[in-house]
């Protein structure tokens, strides 16, 4: 980011706020399967906290939180977690794509398997969403939007 909105007050506010937003994002992700929220909202919250730091402090400081280079791989990892879980269930569990009951985790009843499956998926989605949103911001801020 070439032009940051640097001012001590915003920086202070952002720095104070970001961890809480991030914490809340994590909470939303991990409670998504039985309360409002989930991977997407959580991911968006995480992204919001990162973006807040980016806007407030410029990319140098904020890349300490999440470096520019990490975003793309992170998105890929998120997507792979999602599809990997689905495919694992399909191939090893012998059931349909994304059928959590087929997940090959030993010693778990189908009920808990479904819980766990959703959780894993949510984490994947959250990662991907956060990475994608931050990526969009970075690309635009760098003026590298050349699609």
């Amino acid at each position: 980011m070439k032009r940051s909105f640097e001012s001590p007050i915003t920086l202070l506010g952002a720095r104070a706020l970001a961890p809480f937003i991030m914490m809340f994002g994590l909470y939303v992700i991990f409670h998504g399967h039985y309360s409002p929220g989930g991977g997407f909202q959580g991911g968006a919250l995480l992204a919001a906290s990162v973006l807040l730091m980016r806007v407030a402090s410029g990319s140098k400081t904020s890349s300490l939180i999440l470096s520019n280079a990490v975003t793309t791989p992170m998105g890929v990892v998120g997507v792979l977690i999602y599809f990997g879980t689905g495919l694992l269930a399909m191939f090893l569990g012998g059931s349909n794509f994304l059928d959590y009951e087929g997940l090959p985790i030993p010693g778990m009843s189908p009920f808990y398997l479904r819980y766990t499956g959703i959780l894993i998926i949510e984490v994947g989605v959250g990662l991907a969403v956060m990475a994608a949103l931050v990526l969009i911001y970075d690309k635009m801020a760098d003026g590298e939007v050349s699609q």
């Binding site: 939303v28 989930g38 997407f40 968006a44 919250l45 919001a48 973006l51 806007v55 635009m140």
Partner: peptide, 22 residues
Amino acid sequence: VDVGFTEAVVGAGVTGILFVIA
């Protein structure tokens, strides 16, 4: 609730930031 939640985060937050950058 969850739609509102998402709209608040995304619509008011992330999109706003993106608009400002643009």
